[in-house]
């Protein structure tokens, strides 16, 4: 029996939030999911909430985008140890390089297929984050086979 986990998702796209939640529910009913509509909301929630096991972070968001969130998180002594998984439609290599350097653990480009999405979330959930270092650049990107 897996221990109960807490994950945060920040994404301004309602469809993607819906799909993410459905995929998560099909994998694990016990995992707690907190969702934010943008980066600002995420940072507010993080101020008071218990710290999650992992944060899924969209990049292209209004008000405070994913990159800004990542920088803030990594500068905060309290929050910098939370693993960050980038969850974006962008496939721009410059952006991938930037978030890798910014200290994110994984980069997921949003899949077109629900099954693939489930597999990826499952893979992230089963990761033991304790003393899990940032992977190599090749393993950093989780390619969704279309």
């Amino acid at each position: 029996m897996k221990p109960e986990k807490t994950i945060f998702l920040a994404d301004d796209d309602a469809d993607d939030r819906l799909l993410f939640e459905e995929a998560l529910r099909e994998i694990s009913g016990g995992t707690q999911l907190t969702m934010a509509n943008d980066g600002e909301q995420l940072m507010t929630i993080l101020e008071n909430a218990l710290l999650p096991d992992v944060i899924f972070l969209d990049l292209n968001m209004p008000r405070k985008n994913g990159m800004e969130c990542l920088q803030e998180l990594k500068q905060s002594p309290k929050l910098k140890h939370i693993p960050i998984v980038i969850f974006s439609t962008s496939t721009q290599p410059e952006m991938i390089d930037k978030v890798y350097e910014g200290g994110a653990h994984y980069y997921i480009s949003k899949p077109r297929n629900f099954g693939v999405l489930k597999n990826i979330i499952d893979q992230i959930l089963s990761t033991n984050w304790r003393s899990f270092p940032q992977p190599s650049k090749e393993k950093f990107i989780i390619q969704s086979r279309q």
Partner: peptide, 20 residues
């Protein structure tokens, strides 16, 4: 390419969901 693919991805995903 980015923005056109975005809605397309959704169409594909939801169509897939319906078929599933």
């Amino acid at each position: 390419s980015h923005d056109l693919q975005e809605p397309l991805r959704k169409i594909q995903t939801f169509a897939g969901r319906i078929l599933d």
